[in-house]
Design a protein around this nucleic acid. Structure first.
Length: 430
RNA sequence: GUGAGCGUGGUUCAGUUGGUUAGAACACCGGGUUGUGACCUCGGAGAUCGUGGGUUCAAGUCCCAUCGCUCACCCCA
């Protein structure tokens, strides 16, 4: 045997067994987007490298070392969706058609990190962005929508929120924080010693207990917000309360992308190993302008589909897969095969989900296939019945069998079978 | 980039101090019902034990190397 070619590290197949969960996630989220008047946008996977450098930030880990880039062509496989979406928004002047654009997109993202539980190199995100509004209601509504998605998927997650301030107030907080960290340099972990100069905000996010203890007394960004940011953040909380969305303030929360300002938030779970965030986002008011677009405020978030999927898999009452067929046609002998195959394809043309096997297996083997397909009905066409113009119709669940008259008009047979099938399927749903 | 753990049929694993033809469960195929699934029962097929080298009379087992996977750090969805 030749050497097998395997998928590359961090890239996963989504097998037929996994699809039910994926479709559930997508269906639930799409439905909720529709209820919130979001429209879908589909974007390319490759973009100019510069797009991500300018939006995510040159100094971030993502841009510095995690992007899949064709260096000779200066193009990159997108590590996140927001940059691409804004590029498209600006390029097509979408702000002209509506004062506020509510857009979502679903698809693969690529980051060259070491894979681990809940973290892949190709992963999928559901991404939502509201462009053109700075009102705190929008922030709150977006979080409420994210919470609705998790609720309707039956998942528990906590929502943590913070405000990072704006260009006006962040510098004063930053210098206060740096001053605080300087006093305790020797107590910080090596990593945080480095970060206290390169990206002091990140020290707040350190997971080491010693740093967490130290940082507990650090100045809070929330005490340094300018009046406008402070009012905005209080309003966000007011509307979250109004919408009955539960949340906790976490002034240690820092996001890894440079473009966030004001509101940031994360949906967190304790059931994903080291990966706590299943969805996260925030406001990025200056970014569109920075990418060459009009000065529009915006806010958005992304959910990780693989992470949602892992959580759904862990649930006892998991998602049940759809049957491969509703009606399976078992045939015995060549004449039956002729009748059965013709009927199967006619049924499909009329919208029926129909299975059939042509390998001439025993009836027993065909019944096993029907069972595995989770077909509710099996139409058994045998020589003896065929002579009488009949077939046997078996309900696999109730185990009841009845004789089915095969009319010469095949359309009539289809109509009759589809009627019985629909009938049987709805009665068991209730 | 750093660290730890693990590589045995399709899948999950067992394999004792190295010792005959490497086992099981699930899955698959077939029989028990010459025309009836899911349950039961009997049988069958399926493994270069990740790869290369070494030690030994003898290696799945010990040693070295290499590749791969997983988890964690980091960072993030």
């Amino acid at each position: 045997m030749l050497l097998k070619i395997k998928a590359i590290n961090g890239f996963k197949d989504i097998l037929p067994e996994d699809i039910a969960i994926w479709r559930t996630i997508e269906t639930v989220c799409r439905d909720i987007f529709a209820r919130h008047a979001f429209r879908e946008i589909r974007l390319p996977i490759l973009e100019k490298t510069e797009l991500f450098a300018r939006s995510i930030g040159e100094a971030t880990d993502i841009v510095e070392k995690e992007m899949y880039t064709f260096t000779d062509k200066k193009i990159t496989m997108r590590p996140e969706a927001t940059a691409s979406l804004l590029r498209s928004f600006i390029e097509h002047g979408l702000h002209v058609s509506r004062p506020i654009q509510k857009l979502f997109t679903v698809g693969p993202m690529f980051r060259h990190e070491r894979p681990q539980k809940g973290r892949l190199r190709q992963f999928h995100q559901i991404d939502a962005e509201v462009i053109g509004g700075s009102e705190p209601q929008i922030d709150a509504e977006l979080m409420a929508m994210g919470q609705m998605m998790l609720n309707e998927l039956g998942l528990d997650a906590s929502l943590e929120i913070n405000s990072l301030g704006c260009r006006e107030c962040r510098p004063s907080f930053r210098s206060a924080l740096v001053a605080f960290l300087d006093k305790s340099q020797d107590k910080l972990c090596d990593n945080c010693k480095r970060r206290s100069t390169t990206n002091p905000l990140r020290v707040l996010d350190c997971k080491k207990q010693s740093c967490r203890d130290l940082v507990a007394d650090a100045p809070s960004i929330l005490d340094h917000l300018c009046d406008e940011c402070d009012t905005h953040f209080k309003q966000v909380q007011h509307y979250l309360d109004l919408f009955s969305v539960r949340y906790t303030l976490n002034h240690f929360m820092v996001r890894g992308l440079d473009y966030y300002c004001r509101t940031t938030f994360e949906f967190l779970t304790g059931d994903l190993g080291a990966q706590a965030a299943i969805g996260a986002g925030g406001r990025y008011d200056g970014l569109i302008e920075q990418l060459g677009g009009p000065p529009l405020p915006a806010v958005g978030f992304a959910m990780g589909i693989e992470r949602l999927s892992l959580l759904l898999q862990n649930k006892a009452d998991g998602v049940t897969p759809e049957p491969e067929s509703d009606i399976f046609i078992a045939v015995l002998g060549e004449r039956a095969e002729q009748t059965g195959s013709k009927l199967a394809n006619a049924l499909r043309a009329k919208g029926g989900r129909c299975g059939i096997d042509y390998s001439g297996r025993s009836l027993k083997a065909q019944m096993k296939i029907a069972n595995r397909n989770r077909a509710r009905l099996v139409l058994i066409i045998g020589e003896q019945e065929l002579d009488k113009g009949e077939a046997i119709l078996r309900d696999m669940q109730t185990q009841e069998q009845s004789s089915f008259t095969l009319k010469s008009n095949i359309a009539e047979n289809c109509t009759e079978l589809l009627k019985i099938s629909a009938n049987v399927l709805t009665t068991t749903e209730l």
